[in-house]
Structure formats: C-alpha cells, structure tokens
C-alpha cells in the first residue's frame, strides 16, 4: 500500500517534471493517488483472515457489527497513517500550499473515513469473488463518489486559497455516517452467509 502510493506519487512527480499544476488538478491528483493506494491494501482485509484461518474463529466469537466496526476502525487508521506519510510528500514533490491546515486535515479525515466505511463492506463482498483483480476499486468507486467529489472540490478550494464552502464538509460527514450505518446493516447478511 505504502510503496504503491510512493510509486504512483513518483510517477506523477516525474511526469510533471517540476511544473506545478493548477489547484483543481492538484486536488484531483492527490485524491486519485489516495483512492487507488487505498484499494491496493484494503481489498485484503478479509482475505488475510481467511488465509490465516482466523475468519472462522472470529465468526464464532464476535457479532457481525463488532467485526465490521473493528475492521472499519483498522482500515481508517491504516488510511490515516498512509495519508500522514503521503500527503506531506505530495506537497513537497508535486506542489500545492495549504493556508488552512485545520480544514485540510478535516477534509482528509472525512474523505479517508468514507473510503474506509465503504471499502470495508466492499472488501467483504469481493473476498468471495474468484477473479479479484481490480474488483475492489470497481465496487468501491461508485459508492464513495459522494465523498470523493466534494473532497476534491474542497481540496481544490484550499489549494487555491479560496474560502471553503463548509456545507461540503457537513455533507461529507453525513455521508460517511450513512455509509457506516448502511455497511453495518448490510454486513449482517454477508457475515451470516
């Protein structure tokens, strides 16, 4: 996950060869790299358990909601660590300056939370697939668009130094909540078999 995001960051940085793109393009690049970096590791969150044989134990001792919330929290933390390493490097190597670090941080956290919430459920779904390559990204992307698009919009406003429309942040938060609740309700069916 980490190496993948560094590689894509390096690819973008080298391809740009020092030219600094506009705020919208910067924001788009940042979120595209973050999303695809997330898909690389997150599709395995249930597969690793299945491979280690611990999935059955978990099924015996833990209720579905607890498993989902645990996995969600784990995915969220992983993505927070990932962005903590990736975003500073992005700002250094590709460009962009942020006037309002607190807002920038909240957009990052809300966006990453949405990816974690939707991704935990879609990872559980794609774990049953036989052909898995790319499936996680295909399944997750349409569902997180309601977080992804406002995240890009707000990040672009921040890079441009404009005032941020706070409604976007509220909408992202609500949508994260909706994704989390939806995922935990539907996860019962996946877990129960």
């Amino acid at each position: 996950m980490l190496m993948f995001s560094f590689t894509s960051l390096a690819a973008v940085s080298m391809a740009l060869a020092g030219s600094v793109p506009g705020p919208r393009l910067l924001a788009a690049l940042l979120w595209v790299i973050l999303f695809f970096a997330a898909t690389v590791g997150m599709d395995r969150i249930f597969l690793d358990e299945a491979a280690a044989g611990t999935l059955e134990t978990l099924r015996l001792y833990a209720p579905a909601t607890a498993v989902l919330l645990g996995k969600l929290a784990g995915a969220f933390l992983t993505l927070v660590v990932l962005s903590a390493l990736l975003v500073p490097l992005f700002l250094v190597f590709i460009g962009g300056s942020v006037g309002a670090p607190f807002l920038f941080l909240s957009v990052l956290l809300l966006g990453v939370l949405g990816i974690a919430a939707a991704g935990t459920l879609t990872a559980a779904l794609s774990a049953w697939a036989e052909v898995r390559a790319g499936l996680f990204a295909i399944l997750t992307f349409p569902v997180i668009l309601p977080v992804f698009l406002p995240a890009v919009a707000v990040t672009a406003e921040l890079f441009a130094g404009e005032t941020v429309n706070l409604h976007y942040l509220v909408a992202m938060g609500l949508y994260d909540l909706l994704l989390g609740v939806g995922a935990s309700v539907l996860f019962d069916y996946v877990w129960g078999g």
Binding site: A118, L121, T122, L125, W128, A129, L139, P142, V143, L178, L179, G182, A183, L186, Y189, V190
Partner: peptide, 11 residues
C-alpha cells in the same frame, strides 16, 4: 453478495 451490493449502491 450481489443483493448486498445492490442495496449498498442505493445509498
């Protein structure tokens, strides 16, 4: 699996 995804995408 597909029923769950179908409902999830309704969000």
């Amino acid at each position: 699996i597909s029923a769950v995804y179908s409902l999830f995408s309704c969000l």
